[in-house]
């Protein structure tokens, strides 16, 4: 039950969407781009989100792209997580996405929605951080492709009126050996205690993490430590010393316990990826 009222718009093109946003924004409507819309609906009902104008972008063709050619994987931002899982073009993404929320919710939750989410786990971004993907952004200044590392720091740093259209990923990353695990407080449902996605490329291990800190991250320092050539245990300990802060301490788990779990997961990731040969 959303207590506030809003106007609902469903533009056909990116240009229209962007223009609508500017217009509505100018008129004080606090517009919101809406693709799966689950966050507006669930946060709105408990007064944590508000808008007077919803711009539903989910059927804009550019946002629906799903193609693998010319060595590049293009994924539209309003593809649902289920669509991504069912086509399975990027196995690491499939694995990571398939642990988000639950299956039925993933029929509604979209790739872009999860990456741009306010709830800070944003696990769908992890594979793109590992694959040095690019993101296509559109806004009042037009469309541009930006390396994800330039624009994703804890969250996707979009300017007002901009929206995420697509991700572009080189195919060599989607074939790389990977490791992905989500650990929860207990069993198979609930928010992450820790989610780790890792892959091995050019003989180096890359790791991206959600649930350890109040933001998802991939850390250069952590990866240097993990690829330093000592024993696995020593590398894991070195990585733990250079983690970003703060470590989450909440009802899902204490900070100390999260570190205990993370240590074991990192160890497992390294053992698994060490064994892999491309």
């Amino acid at each position: 039950m959303l207590p506030f009222d809003f106007d609902y718009f469903k533009p056909d093109t990116l240009e229209e969407a962007v223009e609508l946003f500017q217009y509505l924004d100018h008129n004080g409507k606090q517009p919101m781009f809406f693709s799966g819309g689950t966050e507006l609906i669930t946060l709105g009902r408990i007064d944590l989100a508000y808008t007077e104008a919803v711009i539903d972008i989910k059927e804009i063709a550019d946002c629906r792209v799903m193609s693998l050619n010319g060595g590049q994987l293009l994924l539209g931002s309003t593809l649902t997580l289920t669509e991504i899982e069912e086509t399975n073009l990027f196995p690491l993404l499939t694995k990571t996405a398939s642990e988000i929320a639950d299956h039925t919710a993933r029929v509604k939750i979209t790739l872009g929605g999860n990456i741009c989410a306010r709830i800070f786990y944003r696990e769908a971004v992890l594979p793109f951080l590992l694959a040095d993907s690019q993101v296509v952004i559109v806004g009042p200044e037009g469309k541009k492709a930006v390396p994800i590392h330039e624009i994703f720091h804890e969250q996707l740093l979009l300017n007002r009126g901009e929206l995420l259209v697509q991700t572009i990923t080189e195919s060599r990353f989607i074939r790389a050996p990977f490791f992905a695990i989500k650990r929860r407080q207990q069993w198979e449902t609930g928010y992450p205690l820790i989610t780790v996605a890792a892959l091995k490329i050019d003989e180096k291990v890359r790791v991206a993490v959600s649930g350890l800190c109040p933001f998802p991250f991939r850390s250069k320092e952590v990866e240097i430590a993990l690829n330093s050539g000592q024993s696995i245990e020593a590398r894991v300990e070195a990585a733990l010393r250079v983690l970003p802060r703060p470590i989450l301490d909440d009802v899902e788990g204490s900070a100390d316990y999260r570190l205990f779990v993370f240590r074991n997961i990192l160890t497992d990731a390294l053992y698994k990826l060490e064994k892999e040969r491309i």
Partner: peptide
């Protein structure tokens, strides 16, 4: 043909 939590979808959608 897909399952949908009808509380997560707007009527207009």
């Amino acid at each position: 043909g897909w399952p949908m939590k009808s509380c997560l979808m707007l009527g207009v959608e």
